[in-house]
């Protein structure tokens, strides 16, 4: 069943432009030039119940705008959104009871108070039964290892500690749908790992539907089976992460080591990325030359000591999609 349906979502912002310098600051008081910015140009996708969807794209692609429209804090210019049966920006009060949102760039907790106060406030706001609340709080505090920090004022916490506390605050009321907007931004490796494990566990244990936006491909690889890539306000890829590699990727990276000194290498469809006296790193376009042919060629002509064939890292694939404005096939 679909938890989220987005149909042809569009959003046009109006921003005012002004030139640099003190004179233009004065000019803009009297004469303001406005410009329309098309943040979303017709976005459609669906998310199944219990799925963890990765929403990725370069800066300014429209990820956060999408999340905001889904959270009900943004009225789109046109288009339909249904999340667990609600139109987010219409039934706000009823809808947000079932929603948890973590915005990496926003504070969300009461700045001057300890996080525990925000947690207890949420207990009352969402009217969570006391014993259930305590059980859940203890469980999450343990899982994220924040026992030591929840009693200090939020302003004294580190970025990672605050993020973990925000995640707890957003999940205390057992929401059916959770949006995480750059949840690992600025966190160290250990904190990231804990956060991901936490999300994974909540998803598996409770069947919570997640949408995660991030720039960290490890988040995606660890959490999501399916991803939606958005660029310049349109969806350029919607499908399984696994398939992303095979549909878009014809390239293999071949790392070869040799017994004897080697000079050059030339073969149709192959690019020499790195060249040493005893090793090559070759990028082979398998559409032009089959991988078997490349290997055969290498074995035949060189004293090969070792061969390692890998896919280019996911970051590179994503980079390619970002740069090429082409739409990839939906799968």
């Amino acid at each position: 069943m679909n938890a989220i349906t987005v149909k042809n979502l569009k959003k046009v912002y109006r921003t005012h432009k002004r030139g640099k310098g003190m004179w233009n600051a004065v000019v803009s008081l009297f004469n303001r030039k406005y410009e329309n910015k098309h943040a979303l140009k017709g976005v459609s996708f669906e998310v199944e119940e219990g799925e963890v969807l990765g929403l990725i794209g370069p800066n300014g692609a429209g990820k956060s705008t999408t999340i905001k429209a889904l959270s009900g804090i943004l009225h789109p210019t046109s288009g339909d959104v249904k999340v667990i049966g609600y139109v987010p920006w219409k039934d706000r009060v009823k809808y947000v009871k079932h929603l948890g949102v973590v915005l990496g760039q926003k504070e969300q907790l009461w700045w001057d108070l300890p996080a525990i106060d925000t947690f207890y406030m949420n207990r009352e706001v969402y009217q969570i039964p006391n014993n259930k609340f305590k059980r859940r709080l203890n469980y999450m505090v343990k899982l994220l290892d924040v026992k030591e920090v929840i009693n200090s004022p939020v302003r004294d916490l580190s970025l990672g500690e605050r993020m973990k506390c925000k995640l707890i605050a957003a999940l205390l009321h057992s929401p059916k749908v959770v949006f995480l907007d750059e949840p690992t931004i600025g966190l160290d490796i250990i904190a990231r790992d804990r956060l991901r494990d936490f999300v994974k566990e909540v998803n598996q244990k409770e069947g919570t539907t997640f949408i995660v936006t991030t720039h960290d491909m490890q988040d995606i690889e660890k959490l999501c089976k399916r991803i939606v890539i958005i660029n310049h306000g349109v969806i350029v890829y919607d499908g399984l992460l696994e398939k992303l590699k095979s549909t878009i990727l014809n390239n293999k990276i071949i790392d070869v080591k040799f017994e004897t000194k080697v000079k050059g290498f030339r073969l149709k469809g192959c690019k020499l990325l790195e060249k040493g006296d005893y090793n090559f790193v070759i990028e082979a376009d398998t559409k032009v030359t089959k991988i078997k042919k490349v290997i055969d060629y290498l074995l035949l002509n060189y004293e090969v000591a070792d061969i390692n064939i890998t896919d280019p890292p996911i970051e590179e694939i994503i980079q390619r999609i970002y740069k090429e404005k082409k739409k990839w096939v939906h799968t």
Partner: peptide, 14 residues
């Protein structure tokens, strides 16, 4: 100004 007002809109309250 800071955008923190989203927290108020995220609570199921008036």
């Amino acid at each position: 100004k800071s955008g923190e007002v989203v927290s108020e809109f995220m609570r199921p309250l008036n």
